[in-house]
Simulated assay, not measured.
Amino acid sequence: MTDRLKIAYSPCPNDTFVFHAWAHDTVPGAPPIDVTFADIDVTNGMAERGEFDVLKVSYAVLPWVLEEYALLPCGGALGRGCGPLVLTRGEGSAADLAGKTIAVPSERSTAYLLFRLWAATEIPGGVGEVKVLPFDEIMPAVRDGEVDAGLVIHEARFTFQNYGLHCLADMGEHWESTTGLPIPLGAIIAKRSLGAERLRELSDAIRTSVRMAWDDPAASRPYVLAHAQEMNPAVADQHIGLYVNEFTADLGEDGYAAVRGLLTRAAAEGLVPPLGPDALNPG
Rank of each mutant, 00 (worst) to 15 (best):
W64H: 15
G92C: 09
L263V: 08
E253G: 11
D170Q: 08
R108N: 13
L78Y: 09
A205W: 04
S203F: 08
A8S: 15
S10A: 15
I206W: 09
A47R: 13
L168H: 01
A187W: 07
V224C: 02
C74A: 13
L97W: 05
R4V: 11
G125A: 09
D237A: 04
R108L: 12
G186P: 09
P105H: 05
R198F: 12
L5K: 06
G128D: 06
G75E: 01
E155I: 02
N281A: 14
A8P: 10
E173A: 14
P28Y: 00
S193F: 03
C12R: 11
V244T: 04
P273R: 12
E176R: 14
E137H: 11
R157G: 02
A60T: 02
I7W: 12
N44S: 05
G283C: 11
C12G: 11
F37M: 13
S58Y: 04
G180K: 15
A141I: 12
P184M: 08
A267F: 06
A218Y: 06
A187R: 08
C167G: 03
S203P: 05
I40Q: 09
I123Y: 06
G126A: 06
L5R: 06
H20F: 14
I183K: 11
L202S: 08
R260Y: 00
E246G: 15
V86N: 00
S58W: 05
A218M: 13
W214S: 05
C82A: 15
A228W: 01
H227E: 12
L242D: 14
H20M: 07
P105N: 14
A21R: 03
E269D: 08
G79A: 14
Y69T: 06
G186R: 10
D278E: 14
T179Y: 05
S203E: 11
R211D: 15
V130G: 01
M46L: 11
T43I: 09
G79Y: 00
V57S: 04
V42Q: 11
H166F: 06
F37D: 09
L263S: 14
S177H: 13
A120K: 13
W118N: 00
A266W: 01
E129R: 15
A228Q: 01
I153E: 05
Y163A: 03
G150S: 03
A205N: 07
D3R: 15
G99L: 04
E146K: 14
Y112M: 09
V272T: 10
P273Q: 07
V18A: 07
P233F: 03
G83S: 04
D144P: 08
I240Y: 02
S93N: 14
T159R: 10
N232M: 10
V152S: 01
H239V: 05
D237L: 02
G150A: 08
V132C: 05
T2S: 15
R80A: 12
W118M: 00
L113Q: 07
N281R: 15
Y256I: 04
D15A: 15
V259E: 04
A169V: 08
A268E: 12
D148E: 12
S109H: 10
P217S: 07
C74W: 04
L62G: 03
G195V: 01
G29R: 03
D215M: 05
G128W: 05
E67S: 13
H227T: 06
E269G: 11
G283N: 15
A111G: 13
V54Q: 04
P182K: 11
T101L: 04
P222C: 08
D216V: 03
Q161C: 02
G186W: 08
Q161K: 06
G76K: 10
